[in-house]
Design a binder for these strands. Structure first.
Lengths: 257, 257
DNA sequence: CGTGTCTTTGAGGCAACTCAACACTCGTGG
DNA sequence: CCACGAGTGTTGAGTTGCCTCAAAGACACG
């Protein structure tokens, strides 16, 4: 079993590897709410966290002592049932925030999909900063709303889309999110495993794999390797994802009305 | 077709039927953030909205001119696919807020499940008030976080629970929400139809009906009539809902690991 | 070059969906 | 007052498609 390589080095973030000023996500993460001269306040309470692949950052139910901002890598957020079933609620990309819900304990487990780096902030001090800089609080509110939007979209995907549709939707959304600003590339890197995709979409690994194969056979995507997807026909993929009527070919996804 | 009886009477809320002061949801809705003497500001920009059953309040994509607070009745929030499939994202109970996401257009369709009454607030004036009363904005932030929590829970339900588990979970959550403060009653009124429940849980009406029957036959619930459920064995119901290990009887929900 | 993990593909079973029929409630109007 | 029809809920029979189980290929790592 490779899963599980628990906590991690938490270094008090000295000016070691370049400050916030030249951070990759300076303009997209929480800190985007602050001016350059204000960010130092954030920097002062900040700790740096490095995670190896599959390392667990926080576990569901654990006390919520710190909140995090992902600077590089990818995290999966998940809940697990007693019998082992998993539901991945979402993937965190660079710039995303961990700890939107200010409850006493974490409501989701967070694990690294690939080696990742985060900024960690002690909760009490973060609250102080939020009072001092209202824009910081506003930014978190805004990120909460974005997360809610995503969660609502996911409910549609989970509840009403057929497997092939789910995978199509997943690819399009991931493609758009990873582009994030830059023009969308047609090559989408899939950092996560099929098992993660399955647990995100409410399917099994086999069904995910078969769905990829179907999309490839229909010429909508190419699969140079298991962790890279080339989107060949974006329009058709969107149509399959159930985002457009487009009664084109004879493709018969499944459950309709 | 009874569905669709579009918009509604919007009266400029005179002091007709008692002011906010003696409102049912005065202490649970958005307005709970304001003192009695501050609420008048809210009252001044407020309009009253009455909906008959199945009337549509706002449609997905329509410009978001007003936001609402539900005072009585029940609303369903949903998205529909071009081919007619529906996913109900959630149900609004008295005290709940409609318009948490401040986007230009509504992201969800809102329809009345039963005759309902709401307070409506023009968006620009509401924003003014939020600047004047920060606690109002804080309250909305808090309600957004609660909604996010719910949406995350729903993802687990939709993605990983078997039909009977879904229905059990639904009953328990609804029971808790409708109690809202008061001690939870074991009799849960179901205002919505089986079709609504199905579209909420990602099932068909038949499967929902059969799930109710199973739970009844196992003695976990009683069904005095189609729209009232008596919870007989809360613990067992929670166990079925996948919230506890409890390897009791021979019940075999389905998809496990 | 083994070993373990991940991915893909195949075969088969079972559960949820589809289709269909019937029971029930509740207005409406004869 | 009762017949009627529409809407809703339940139950049954059959089918489809996803999951389960199994095995082999692909790939990374030691």
């Amino acid at each position: 079993m490779s899963r599980s390589a628990t906590v991690v080095a938490i270094r008090p973030h000295r000016k070691a590897c370049g400050a916030c000023a030249d951070c990759e996500v300076r303009r997209t993460a929480v800190c985007a709410a602050l001016e350059d001269d204000e960010v130092v306040a954030l920097e002062r309470i900040m700790g740096s966290v490095r995670l190896e692949a599959n390392a667990m950052l926080v576990e569901e139910g654990a006390p919520r002592r710190r909140v995090f901002s992902l600077t590089s890598g990818m995290l999966r957020l998940l809940t697990a049932l007693p019998d082992g079933r998993r539901q991945i609620t979402g993937f965190l990309l660079p710039g995303d925030y961990l700890g939107l819900l200010d409850e006493a304990t974490h409501t989701l487990t967070a694990e690294a999909v690939v080696p990742s780096v985060l900024c960690g902030f002690p909760v009490p001090q973060m609250q102080d900063l939020m009072e001092r800089y209202p824009r910081l609080r506003d930014r978190l509110h805004q990120m909460t709303k974005a997360a809610l939007r995503q969660a609502w979209d996911n409910q549609l995907v989970l509840g009403r889309l057929a497997p092939v549709e789910k995978v199509s939707s997943f690819l399009l959304v991931l493609s758009a999110r990873q582009a994030s600003g830059r023009p969308v590339s047609d090559t989408v890197p899939l950092a996560m495993t099929r098992a993660d995709i399955a647990d995100y979409l409410g399917l099994t690994v086999e069904t995910v794999s078969r769905s990829f194969t179907k999309l490839r056979q229909q010429g909508l995507i190419r699969l140079p390797d298991a962790h890279r997807v080339e989107i060949v026909d974006r329009g058709a993929l969107a149509a399959v994802a159930g985002m457009e009527p487009q009664s084109s070919g004879s493709s018969t996804p499944s459950t309709k009305r």
